[in-house]
């Protein structure tokens, strides 16, 4: 690059078109999904135990003859060779027919469809609160790192991040539910009557649990990203050119610092969208996480595969979304050039 005129802006020389770029990324995600689908099929079958052992009551099972067992197995497809089960599974995935739950005979799709809205409500609420609090406290902690306030925030975040969800959940139940008796401790409604106020009341404790335990991680991530940007050359140079501190933070620090936070947040949403197994179980919340827990406990293969599938697809989807939205925030990813 010797000549001033040499590299003109917007030059896309040597770059392939954006269509082929997206096609390439699409192919990568398809590959990830294929691997995930295969694991999804294989892993439940690698678990010790099997559905027959938990089917009905054990004494009755013991009295069954070998023929009778074989008959039951073939009815549910267990008798078929693995590859045949795999093909059936794949066909089911693409036709959204995920089979029937072994535990209660419901179609898996229906079980998931019932649980999904509850999970989205719980996770959506807590993600929004966690993100707002975690990121803004992280920014504050980064800017005040030399003062007592910043140190206190950091210590608090580390403490929050180390709290186990189940423990906090149980503490909250004991305190607000049993001792004070001001908040409901399980389910989403009282006696099956669904009202907006009732649902909101039931949401409080699980949301608090998820938020409190999730905030520390986001805080620390935001804080360290901010610190890196604060000492970066562009910020030092802007300071030397006389940009006042408030403007420096708003314009030169925040945006580059929040770029990696954006990616992390997207991935978090992906994971949580499949439900928080611990929190939903502790609060007997009828979401996907609890469904997954029950399915694993009962060795309910079709249901397990179904909930795992939702988890996989969500994570891959949010990954793709993070990839696609990143260029909107960072011009370097948008307009090419490596330097």
């Amino acid at each position: 690059m010797t000549d001033v005129q040499e590299t003109l802006p917007g030059s896309t020389l040597g770059r392939r078109g954006s269509w082929s770029y997206f096609a390439g990324r699409g192919l990568e995600y398809a590959l990830v999904l294929a691997v995930a689908l295969t694991l999804n099929f294989a892993l439940p079958r690698a678990l010790p135990g099997g559905p027959m052992k938990l089917f009905g009551n054990p004494e009755a099972l013991a009295r069954l003859t070998a023929e009778e067992r074989a008959q039951i197995a073939s009815e549910y497809g267990f008798g078929q060779p693995l590859w045949q089960q795999f093909l059936d599974y794949l066909q089911g995935v693409f036709t959204l027919d995920l089979g029937t739950s072994l535990a209660d005979g419901r179609p898996v799709t229906e079980a998931i469809a019932t649980a999904l809205p509850w999970t989205l409500l719980l996770v959506g609420t807590s993600i929004v609160i966690t993100a707002l609090l975690g990121v803004s406290l992280g920014v504050l902690g980064g800017l005040r790192r030399r003062e007592g306030k910043g140190a206190g925030l950091l210590a608090g975040a580390i403490a929050l991040d180390s709290i186990p969800q189940f423990w906090l959940g149980m503490l909250l139940i004991v305190f607000f539910g049993v001792k004070l008796q001001v908040l409901p401790t399980f389910g989403v409604s009282d006696a099956g009557v669904v009202t907006i106020g009732g649902v909101a009341e039931h949401l409080i404790l699980p949301v608090v649990t998820l938020t409190v335990t999730g905030i520390g991680y986001l805080f620390m991530y935001t804080r360290s990203s901010l610190l890196a940007v604060l000492t970066s050359q562009p910020v030092e140079h802007a300071h030397a050119r006389g940009v006042p501190r408030g403007r420096l933070v708003r314009r030169h620090v925040l945006r580059p610092a929040l770029l990696p936070v954006h990616t992390i947040l997207m991935l978090d949403i992906g994971f949580l969208a499949a439900g928080s197994i611990v929190v939903e179980t502790v609060f007997a919340y009828p979401g996907l996480g609890r469904l997954t827990f029950d399915a694993i406990a009962a060795r309910d293969y079709p249901l397990m595969q179904g909930t795992f599938l939702v988890l996989t697809v969500m994570v891959v989807l949010m990954n793709a979304l993070a990839d696609l939205t990143y260029p909107l925030l960072d011009p370097r990813a948008r307009t090419g050039g490596s330097r």
Partner: peptide, 26 residues
């Protein structure tokens, strides 16, 4: 107190302009 001096009375041409410009603004 340097307000109104940096950039206005004394300008700096900093070291490492290769990486010293804000990457996200035109």
């Amino acid at each position: 107190e340097w307000t109104g001096l940096r950039g206005r009375r004394i300008g700096i041409v900093p070291q490492g302009a290769m990486t010293g410009l804000s990457p996200v603004h035109r």
